[in-house]
Amino acid sequence: MKDGDESEQVRELQARLRQIGYFDRSPTAFYGSMTGGAVKAFQKKRELPQTGSVDEITWQKLLGMTRKPTADELKPSTTNKLDKPDPRCLTGRVLCISKESRTLAWMVDGKVLSSFDVRFGSENTPTREGTFKVDRKERTWKSTLYHTQMPYSMFFSRGQAVHYSADFAARGYAGASHGCVNVRDMSKLAEVFNQVKVGDKVVVHW
């Protein structure tokens, strides 16, 4: 396993690393820089080559030190931990969205005012990455393409928006969006919706 991989084995890797204190957030199944750093720290402690990737020796060593993760360890209901903010998020009013930690932070001048677990599009309908602006807000909206309800929509890239998803609230990460950034806490999102202005920055990053 290596940087950029996404699989259930990566989820298991993260859960096992979490058991022994090397990974301090909910497993996401995506192998990014945080996972690589955790693997490197594990390798250093065991005097293995510090590649940040998982070879057979590293995997077997980890298996020997951990137990099979439970369903709750693999997909916990707890809130995901925020990443260190992307540098683009440190100035102004920003919806700072991390694909790796699956989080959204509403930030003003570098301070996090509110944060959420979020869900993204599938491989066929990916959420676009980059720096955008909120170009319109709709308190109630129904997708013209997919005919699903999108309450508290903040559109930032053509049809893609941050919005509440009843499906995400019900099914969690078992599903995916059609490209939007799904939020599962409607009351908290309603508060942020009232604070965000058209023209505020949106940053979507790994």
Results as ranks from 00 to 15, higher is better:
Arg16Phe: 08
Arg16Cys: 07
Arg16Glu: 09
Arg18Met: 04
Arg18Phe: 01
Arg18Pro: 00
Arg18Cys: 01
Arg18Ala: 15
Arg18Lys: 15
Gln19Asp: 10
Gln19Glu: 11
Gly21His: 05
Gly21Asp: 03
Tyr22Ile: 08
Tyr22Val: 09
Arg25Pro: 00
Ser26Gly: 06
Ser26Cys: 12
Pro27Thr: 00
Pro27Arg: 00
Thr28Val: 08
Thr28Tyr: 06
Ala29Tyr: 11
Ala29Ser: 15
Phe30Pro: 01
Phe30Asp: 11
Tyr31Asp: 01
Tyr31Leu: 06
Tyr31Met: 06
Ser33Arg: 13
Met34Pro: 06
Met34Asn: 12
Thr35Glu: 02
Thr35Cys: 03
Gly36Tyr: 06
Gly36Lys: 14
Gly36Asn: 07
Gly37Pro: 05
Gly37Trp: 08
Gly37Gln: 14
Gly37Met: 11
Gly37Tyr: 09
Ala38Ile: 03
Ala38Asn: 01
Val39Ile: 13
Val39Ser: 03
Val39Lys: 04
Val39Thr: 05
Val39Trp: 06
Lys40Gln: 12
Ala41Val: 02
Phe42Gly: 06
Phe42Ile: 09
Gln43Ile: 03
Lys44Arg: 11
Lys44Ser: 09
Lys45Gly: 00
Lys45Phe: 01
Arg46Ala: 01
Arg46Trp: 03
Glu47Gln: 13
Glu47Trp: 03
Glu47Phe: 05
Leu48Met: 15
Pro49Lys: 10
Pro49Ala: 07
Pro49His: 04
Gln50Gly: 07
Thr51Trp: 07
Gly52Tyr: 04
Ser53Tyr: 12
Ser53Ala: 14
Ser53Glu: 15
Val54Gly: 03
Glu56Lys: 14
Glu56Gln: 14
Glu56His: 09
Ile57Met: 09
Ile57Gln: 14
Thr58Gln: 03
Thr58Glu: 03
Gln60His: 08
Gln60Asp: 13
Gln60Ile: 05
Gln60Val: 05
Gln60Lys: 13
Lys61Thr: 15
Lys61Trp: 09
Leu63Val: 09
Leu63Glu: 12
Gly64Arg: 00
Gly64Thr: 00
Met65Ser: 12
Met65Gln: 15
Thr66Trp: 10
Thr66Arg: 07
Arg67Tyr: 10
Arg67Gly: 10
Arg67Leu: 08
Arg67Val: 12
Arg67Lys: 15
Arg67Phe: 10
Lys68Glu: 10
Lys68Ser: 05
Pro69Cys: 04
Ala71Phe: 04
Ala71Trp: 02
Asp72Leu: 13
Leu74Asn: 07
Lys75Trp: 11
Lys75Asp: 12
Pro76Asp: 01
Pro76Phe: 03
Ser77Phe: 11
Ser77Ile: 09
Ser77Gln: 12
Thr78Ala: 13
Thr78Asp: 10
Thr78His: 11
Thr79Val: 13
Thr79Asn: 11
Thr79Leu: 12
Asn80Ser: 14
Asn80Ala: 14
Lys81Arg: 15
Lys81Thr: 15
Leu82His: 01
Leu82Glu: 00
Lys84Phe: 11
Pro85Ala: 08
Pro85Cys: 02
Asp86Gln: 08
Asp86Ser: 09
Asp86Cys: 04
Pro87Ile: 10
Cys89Gln: 04
Cys89Ile: 07
Leu90Pro: 01
Leu90Ala: 01
Leu90Tyr: 02
Thr91Gly: 11
Thr91Leu: 13
Thr91Ser: 15
Thr91Gln: 14
